[in-house]
């Protein structure tokens, strides 16, 4: 079985009086260790698809297996546990907790795991070192630049060593240099640590980092040939 497997997934939601169907009978298979990029116009359902894979939203029907778990059959409590162990989520905005330091933000996922204080410290230190922010550990988010905040968010996403990273426009709010740094970091995590990455982006330059690229439009998912970006 593929690491990520979607079979005839349909998702609808209400927007005012209208029913919107961002995903209609979508099927997809992604092997472990892939760096997949989801492209498509705004409102095409990219983020919806990513949220389903990351178990923070539920499909209306279809089959959805990720990392060996049948997400369609799990309770919300079980999904929360599953997310803690299997998914690192990188948002467009860093969504760091403003009252916690960079160190404490990175430590947050580890409070959900049966680890000693020393183990937590070791993991947080390694994660911060991986994103090159050891010297910013005691800074609050407001004391960091946008790029640094996003790197802290990546450290938070990888600190529990989940097999899957999902990233929703991770470079959308960053300048060129910061965006390059973040994308290079994701490349390394994919190549060196074997993380499966699912990234939503509008940025063609970011899309070039993907080993597989998909486009989603009007509820239809299509894989692009290597080198093709639209």
């Amino acid at each position: 079985m593929a690491f990520i497997e979607l079979r005839n997934i349909t998702k609808t939601y209400r927007k005012g009086e209208h029913v919107v169907t961002p995903l209609a009978d979508v099927s997809l298979e992604i092997e472990q260790g892939a760096f997949c990029v989801l492209l498509g116009p705004s409102g095409s359902g990219k983020t919806t698809l990513m949220n389903l894979v990351a178990a923070i939203d539920r499909a209306d029907r279809g089959e959805l297996h990720v990392a060996g778990a049948d997400l369609m059959k799990m309770s919300s409590g079980a999904l929360a546990d599953w997310r803690a162990q299997n998914v690192g989520y990188i948002f467009q905005q860093s969504n760091l907790v403003p009252v916690l330091t960079a160190y404490e933000n990175v430590e947050l996922p580890l409070w959900l795991m049966p680890l000693s204080a020393a183990e937590r410290h070791q993991r947080v230190s390694l994660a911060l070192a991986a994103v090159g922010l050891t010297d910013r550990a005691e800074h609050l988010p407001k004391q960091l630049s946008g790029g640094q905040e996003q790197r802290v968010a990546i450290a938070r996403a990888i600190v529990a060593d989940p097999p899957l990273l999902v990233a929703d426009e991770p470079t959308g709010n960053l300048d060129h240099d910061s965006a390059t740094g973040v994308l290079t970091l994701l490349d390394r995590l994919n190549r060196e640590r074997g993380k499966t990455i699912l990234m939503v982006t509008h940025d063609p330059r970011a899309a070039e980092h993907g080993t597989r690229r998909f486009t989603l439009d009007k509820g239809e998912l299509r894989e692009l040939a290597p080198g093709v970006l639209r």
Binding site: I56, R83, A84, V87, F91, V97
Partner: peptide
């Protein structure tokens, strides 16, 4: 709201 949703996404239950 967004911060709390992020915590839920990280794995914290309601």
């Amino acid at each position: 709201l967004r911060e709390l949703a992020a915590l839920r996404a990280v794995g914290y239950g309601g």
